[in-house]
Design a protein around this nucleic acid. Sequence first.
RNA 1: GGAGGGGUUCCCGAGUGGCCAAAGGGGGCAGACUGUAAAUCUGUUGGCGACGCCUUCGGAGGUUCGAAUCCUCCCCCCUCCA
Length: 403
Amino acid sequence: MLSLNEQMDIINRGNKEIISEDELAGKIESSIQTGIPLTVKWGADPSAPDIHLGHTVSIRKLGQFQNLGHRVVFIIGDFTAMIGDPSGKTIARKHLSRQQVMQNAETYKQQIFRILDPEKTVVEFNSRWCNALSFEEILNLTSKYTIARMLERDDFENRYRTGQPITIMEFLYPLIQGYDSVALKADIELGGTDQKFNLLVARDIQREYGQIPQVVITMPLLVGTDGTQKMSKSLGNYIALDDPPEQMYGKTMSVPDELIYPYFELLTDVTGEELEQIKKLLADPKCNPMELKKQLAKRLVTMYYDPQKAETAEREFDTIFRKKETPEQMSVHRLSANLLWVIKLLTEVKFASSNSEARRLVQQGAVSIDGTRISDPELTIKFKGGEVLKVGKKKFVSLEIGC
RNA sequence: GGAGGGGUUCCCGAGUGGCCAAAGGGGGCAGACUGUAAAUCUGUUGGCGACGCCUUCGGAGGUUCGAAUCCUCCCCCCUCCA
């Protein structure tokens, strides 16, 4: 096991805030003395199994804890999912079946184990202890926190002030998450800065239950591909771990230039010196940021796939977007007939969800076949096979005759 | 329990009898521009083989030649008083 200072150095890198560093040092010290690893908690909602780069900011930090010999517990909040984290607008949550939860959990594991060591990761479902709680115990839990303190939470305060509904059930969310820490006797809990409130509540709850409060480590929120809002699945501005290489590469390239630096910092293992270098280059007007972004995109694809796939992805990107040519590889669609109305064609290959949308695309000049723009929405085309249909900038399909 | 305010398209939000498939903004999509992007500009944004028709403004009825708009009942949300 590494010394206190060495451990602190590693943990300190890239986080937003540690509450508190002194407590953390104390815990690490006693762990070194006793040889007992610290329990590091991290939780996730089971309803959204698409892990994206935003999550990896925390997951990578967990990986560091594992390397330091500590015990990482990944909690799947199947119980809390019934409530839904009150941060969003989504109030009514659909109840997930046991089977769905298990399925999502599997998907989760598959993804996080691309970063974490499966041997060293404990996976828990919080329904295990939550379902066992009696009403009396729940009342007891609710007696440990006040409305005033709940309303300190930004979302709650906001919604309360602007006249948005808040249910009592939502107040339970932070309490249950806190109770999870009690059940696990968590030493440390990791989360995004948006989780700070919940993580801090857990400290109070643990104290109420006679435990030493967990150390809270918040990680910066990754800005999504739109360059403004945090990366999230519901906003659609995310790069998923499961995105195929070309997509991972392409999405990274579509990120605003300002994100190049934070992405290198939070998502890759580049050293401090390299980061400095990147910062310098970005400030240099002679340097084309595209080159750095390509490095970033390639690096990410290499991390989650391999160098060859990264190479291919880069080549394809250059072909489509820089040279504006057709990609080498594209999916093939077998036409239902060899004489087809353009509108029908677009809906058939699912590049448009309705005839109206298809018409719009044609009228806007988004549609071309073998490089020739189609502008007449009434056109019927005769195919002989091998044609390439392009819609917009990035949708391609190769057409073949027959089903 | 009482009094008042409100529910409109993906989101926010205007509209209080026909000119309403519904202003404006956001987002999305497309086009132009560009060193990839972003930004910007322009267009578009319910459906239908389509210059006409069908469905939409919390739900169900009703008034009317005609309803997002008026009436009745119901559901939901918010505020204040208790």
